[in-house]
Design a protein around this nucleic acid. Structure first.
Lengths: 239, 239
DNA sequence: TTAGTTATAGTCAAGATGACTAGAACTAAT
DNA sequence: ATTAGTTCTAGTCATCTTGACTATAACTAA
């Protein structure tokens, strides 16, 4: 048996063709808000240069190649669009609704990534790649607004339990910086004293002898994260 | 442009063909252990009737059809192989390693389901469909052992937080039955008194006026679960 | 009637959490 | 140089949660 499919899209062929498979990524990084200067969540989007949804902003993504795993495809595509090599990359969800894309049916396996601010600052930007505040997105192509919402929800969830916040920070950080990450993601103020007590209770956080100099007030001690990434079943730790 | 693919598998065609997409499901239900009589986790498997892995046991699954969502495909395929209509059905993970299947590359989007014991008892069994204890599986086809392990891990995780245990029980249940579910899944004993205190603290559990009669000892009160399912981003509540 | 078993409520100490106070350590203004 | 302002940091205290345990209630089976 030798079934033949075609990529062109008329009704009959659409009925016969298998859904096409794409990989997309939601990439989060912290950047200072233009207004308050406090860290807030941003993500890079790419402008679509062809139909459907031509000229609208969309998540970076593309087809899965024959010789790469899903995670590799997500990594590659991240690198190609933004030049980033994320510290944290995990599968988010497979979106497969019937009408996500107008012509052909597309199943998207979406990954989400966290990148450190030092890296994020180096990310490519251009006419067709730009960073946006995660909480102030315009209307995106396809169902990408819903995907970002879900990624944000997962991020908040993980933040509440696990030790994921550190992947948005550099190698060394102050406890106040950690708190700012929590505040940015969870969108509420936390008591500095109680927060530090809790963080200091986790064994994955290590005191260094260094202090952050150059601030306006008492220099805070620097800490380091010694835990492991924490990813999917490919290396187990999702919830 | 009109690209042509074929399903037959020689090296060159494999390089060109897109990965094929399949849906599989891990279905958990409680059944009494043959030895102790206490409830334990079981799942149905199907015997493969063709290569690859002919005659080995595998998760129920099949290709995604053009007019059904991912979740619908999982449902259908559950119904077709076991006759079950699960109470709880959620996406588990998309498995897309390069060598999951020997000939063609297959990306499997796996769902997991919980069914009530009353339903599970009615499930079809045949020469090619049989239930197995989840913690005593032989070697399965493809990477299905790893998939089941991951599903078990997710189940334990969800059990620890959310109110998922009730989907393995019928409409009415005693607090001791809930405890037995936790004990079966988490594989450790729990203090009856403390457990009941905790469960009674959750607002989703409602006391009924009824008692379970016919036991050997003091008849326990029956309770009812009033919470919502809780699923993926399609209806939001994963962690 | 009694022994055995489960159901259910309650106690108590240890630990975690949230609100709060206070001193230490630095910068910037006077 | 002194002072005011701010953040960093440690600590207190009442409340809530948790795990170990005790005790009584309510039923069955001998």
């Amino acid at each position: 048996m030798n079934t033949v499919y075609a990529t062109s899209a008329n009704v009959e062929e659409r009925r016969l063709a298998p859904p096409s498979l794409a990989i997309s990524t939601v990439i989060f990084a912290l950047r200072p808000s233009e207004s308050s200067g406090r860290p807030t969540l941003w993500l890079p989007l790419v402008r679509r240069i062809r139909e459907p949804f031509k000229d609208m902003w969309a998540l970076p993504g593309g087809p899965l190649q024959h010789d790469e795993s899903l995670q590799d495809a997500a990594s590659r595509n991240l690198r190609e669009t933004t030049g980033l090599a994320p510290q944290y990359l995990e599968q988010l969800y497979a979106f497969g609704g019937l009408h996500r894309s107008p012509a052909q049916r597309v199943v998207s396996i979406v990954y989400w990534a966290l990148v450190q601010p030092t890296e994020a600052a180096l990310a490519d930007e251009s006419e067709n790649v730009r960073w946006f505040r995660a909480d102030r997105l315009a209307e995106l192509a396809f169902d990408h607004n819903a995907i970002v919402d879900y990624a944000l929800w997962r991020l908040r969830n993980k933040m509440a339990y696990g030790s994921i916040a550190y992947h948005l920070l550099g190698e060394f950080f102050t406890l106040a910086q950690v708190r700012e990450v929590y505040e940015a993601v969870l969108d509420r103020q936390l008591d500095p004293a109680n927060f530090r007590r809790q963080i200091k209770g986790t064994p994955e956080i290590e005191e260094t002898g260094e202090y952050l100099q150059g601030g306006k007030h008492r220099p805070p001690r620097l800490y380091r994260f010694t835990g492991t990434p924490g990813l999917g079943p490919d290396n187990r730790s999702t919830p």
